[in-house]
């Protein structure tokens, strides 16, 4: 273990070196002042694994030195032991506040010093194990994200929300409906605006959660009547419901948007993930004209694809007013 010992008394440094060496710690560097220690730390090819500091030294004392060492990224976790003849509690407390891990009183008992060093060594190993686990977990997460990456236009399966099914199931459901049931049904599509931007920025897991949250907000508005809905890719959802569904009001898009805003969606880095929903026209099947039973769904999807949210409409209106003013 590479150790740095700092004390202004050369005799104390030699005593430390001899004690450590007799216990097998032979890689010990000695510094007789805080400035010399900082220089040695700067120039070290490999970081010191443990640092022993005297508290009372002329010029910069051990507490200030401890603070400066802790401020360096490489030494955030390195065990720092204070070796001090200062019996006053306030000095020891200040040392701990500055980032020291432990302290040994002078005159030090060699057995105690070595025991504390061994504890420090264990801490290093535990930190290393934790760091390795974190690293492995990050890699696993990255691998998972890469494996689960999906194209913006891909229809992914949203689970565990009542009424939400895959696109194929939605179509199968429509295909088994009677003609009158088809007539009594309407389809309406919703589209997340600027979905490509969100897709490019969010990790697959984040995007999946966002799509699930938005699906839940839409489903919540329709839950008073029978409905079935699906996510069809490109940020588009399609809902099939009864012609007389109480959800189908002029206020529907606004209610869903409120619910989405209330979620306070965020990216993993904590920045806001703005989701604005546009709603397409409500589409229904003519009683007299035939055509594919699933045409209503496709019409609703196409309508959603070109729909514009009221927010954007009002923004465009404002721009128009400014331009024409």
């Amino acid at each position: 273990m590479k150790i740095l010992a700092v004390d202004d008394d050369p005799m104390m440094l030699e005593l430390l070196e001899a004690t450590l060496s007799s216990s097998g710690y032979t890689d010990v560097s000695l510094a007789s002042s805080a400035h010399e220690a900082l220089e040695m730390i700067d120039q070290a090819l490999a970081p010191y694994r443990c640092i022993l500091l005297d508290i009372q030294m002329p010029g910069m004392d051990g507490i200030e030195l401890c603070k400066r060492i802790r401020a360096q990224e490489l030494y955030k976790q390195t065990p720092i032991l204070m070796i001090t003849a200062m019996t006053e509690r306030s000095f020891v407390e200040r040392a701990f506040i500055a980032g020291a891990n432990d302290y040994v009183s002078k005159p030090f008992d060699p057995f105690e010093l070595v025991t504390r060093l061994r504890l420090a060594e264990q801490t290093i190993q535990q930190n290393r194990v934790v760091a390795e686990k974190i690293f492995a977990l990050q890699n696993l997460k990255k691998e998972y994200e890469n494996r689960n990456r999906f194209a913006p236009d891909q229809a992914i399966s949203i689970q565990d929300i009542d009424g939400v099914v895959d696109e194929v199931e939605l179509e199968n459901f429509v295909l088994q409906m009677s003609r009158s049931e088809q007539y009594n049904s309407v389809a309406v599509g919703f589209r997340i605006e600027e979905f490509d931007g969100i897709h490019a920025r969010a990790k697959p897991s984040e995007l999946f959660l966002t799509l699930t949250d938005v699906a839940e907000c839409i489903a919540d508005q329709f839950k008073q009547s029978n409905f079935i809905m699906s996510y069809v890719g490109s940020g588009i959802y399609v809902v099939l419901t009864h012609r007389a569904s109480p959800a189908l009001t002029d206020d529907l898009q606004r209610q869903i948007q409120f619910a989405i805003n209330d979620l306070g969606l965020e990216y993993d880095d904590g920045s806001q993930c703005r989701v604005t929903l546009a709603m397409g026209a409500v589409k229904s099947k003519s009683l007299f004209f035939g055509g594919s039973p699933t045409a209503t769904i496709h019409d609703a999807i196409e309508s959603a694809r070109t729909a514009i949210s009221p927010l954007r409409l009002s923004h465009q209106g404002n721009l128009h007013s400014i331009a024409s003013a």
Partner: peptide
């Protein structure tokens, strides 16, 4: 005081 500090740290050893 400063010499006492040094002696206090070493003498016991």
């Amino acid at each position: 005081m400063s010499e006492s500090h040094r002696i206090a740290g070493l003498a016991g050893s």
